Amino acid sequence: MLIMNEFDIYDDYAIAEVVPDHILENIFSFLRLKDLRNCALVCKSWYRILSDENNDVWRLHCIKRLAEEVMKSDLLSTVNTYKSKLRAFFHAWNPHDCSRNIYVKANGFTLHRNPVAQSTDACRGKVGFHHGRHAWEVIWEGPLGTVAVVGVSTKEAPLECHGYVGLLGSDEQSWGWNLVDNHLLHNGDTQGHYPLLNNCPKYQVILTIHTTNLINHFCPITLKCVFS
């Protein structure tokens, strides 16, 4: 039972400070994620609870939003906290921003391209950026095919075209790394070469934006292989 004296009742932060952590965690798990940001500003106690990325707040949100197979698989094994797993999900592939020949599987992290002849297809992530440094890990399963490109683009870059071409890097709206011949592509030209990686299973895409204009940035991406 919670007992507050008459003075505490009129204290704006009295209730926020005395409610036990486990009750607050359960309450927070029912709130929208964007509302949790405001909750963290209420008082030090709430900020402390929401800053713990492995408590029940984030665990329960993960259970609600992430497929069970993802939680039990090795897909997010290098992502150490529940909050970071949730963040990864909201930055994963966008099923509504991809070629018609691509579909994103129910786990939210795996995309599949239908074997359509003479077609190059792409998919973007759910969240775009205009500043800062950001990193993604891409795991490529199976053969690379004629053209296999990972990279970054603006929202204006095309997601589908006829034939087998390096779609990412084909114009000024994107930069791409062709994993087949290890060429860095931008505006339809080769901008550099990477060492041959022998079909490495994991790749990292690191985007650094110093201005709000990706096109005018001299070296917007760092691409490297990560061996498992």
Rank of each mutant, 00 (worst) to 15 (best):
residue 95 P to I: 10
residue 160 E to S: 09
residue 14 A to G: 07
residue 179 L to F: 04
residue 50 L to S: 08
residue 39 C to A: 12
residue 117 A to K: 13
residue 57 V to H: 00
residue 218 F to P: 01
residue 213 N to Q: 05
residue 162 H to A: 08
residue 52 D to L: 01
residue 228 S to Q: 14
residue 213 N to R: 11
residue 92 A to P: 03
residue 146 T to L: 08
residue 83 K to H: 03
residue 36 L to K: 06
residue 88 A to Y: 02
residue 181 D to E: 10
residue 141 E to M: 10
residue 90 F to N: 11
residue 10 Y to C: 12
residue 147 V to R: 15
residue 36 L to M: 06
residue 217 H to G: 03
residue 105 K to L: 12
residue 133 R to L: 05
residue 126 K to W: 04
residue 225 C to E: 09
residue 167 L to F: 08
residue 123 C to G: 04
residue 211 T to D: 09
residue 196 L to C: 06
residue 93 W to S: 06
residue 11 D to I: 04
residue 72 K to C: 07
residue 228 S to I: 11
residue 202 K to Q: 07
residue 144 L to C: 04
residue 215 I to K: 13
residue 119 S to F: 03
residue 23 I to P: 03
residue 176 G to L: 10
residue 23 I to H: 10
residue 110 T to D: 11
residue 67 A to H: 15
residue 187 N to K: 12
residue 190 T to A: 06
residue 15 I to S: 03
residue 100 R to T: 08
residue 112 H to A: 11
residue 55 N to A: 02
residue 7 F to H: 02
residue 15 I to C: 08
residue 156 E to K: 15
residue 190 T to Q: 06
residue 175 W to E: 01
residue 90 F to K: 03
residue 107 N to E: 13
residue 69 E to S: 14
residue 195 P to N: 07
residue 119 S to Q: 13
residue 182 N to P: 00
residue 12 D to E: 15
residue 224 K to G: 03
residue 78 T to C: 04
residue 112 H to L: 05
residue 159 L to W: 06
residue 196 L to G: 00
residue 66 L to H: 01
residue 94 N to T: 05
residue 170 S to C: 13
residue 109 F to M: 06
residue 185 L to W: 15
residue 171 D to A: 03
residue 224 K to Y: 10
residue 177 W to M: 09
residue 137 E to I: 14
residue 188 G to P: 07
residue 56 D to R: 06
residue 81 T to Y: 04
residue 195 P to W: 11
residue 131 H to T: 08
residue 154 T to I: 08
residue 38 N to M: 02
residue 45 S to G: 02
residue 68 E to T: 12
residue 115 P to M: 05
residue 189 D to W: 10
residue 130 H to N: 14
residue 217 H to D: 12
residue 33 L to T: 13
residue 123 C to K: 01
residue 54 N to R: 05
residue 108 G to P: 14
residue 105 K to S: 08
residue 12 D to A: 13
residue 144 L to M: 09
residue 199 N to S: 12
residue 214 L to R: 01
residue 71 M to I: 15
residue 121 D to G: 03
residue 55 N to H: 03
residue 37 R to Q: 09
residue 167 L to T: 04
residue 126 K to L: 12
residue 178 N to P: 03
residue 92 A to N: 13
residue 16 A to F: 15
residue 59 R to Q: 13
residue 76 L to T: 09
residue 210 H to R: 07
residue 81 T to L: 03
residue 134 H to E: 04
residue 228 S to R: 12
residue 202 K to D: 00
residue 225 C to K: 06
residue 196 L to S: 11
residue 174 S to E: 10
residue 166 G to F: 00
residue 57 V to E: 01
residue 180 V to S: 00
residue 150 V to A: 09
residue 56 D to V: 01
residue 6 E to C: 09
residue 113 R to K: 12
residue 105 K to I: 02
residue 191 Q to F: 08
residue 162 H to V: 11
residue 160 E to L: 04
residue 194 Y to R: 10
residue 83 K to T: 01
residue 207 L to M: 15
residue 54 N to V: 02
residue 21 D to M: 00
residue 59 R to H: 14
residue 117 A to P: 06
residue 191 Q to P: 00
residue 107 N to C: 12
residue 136 W to V: 09
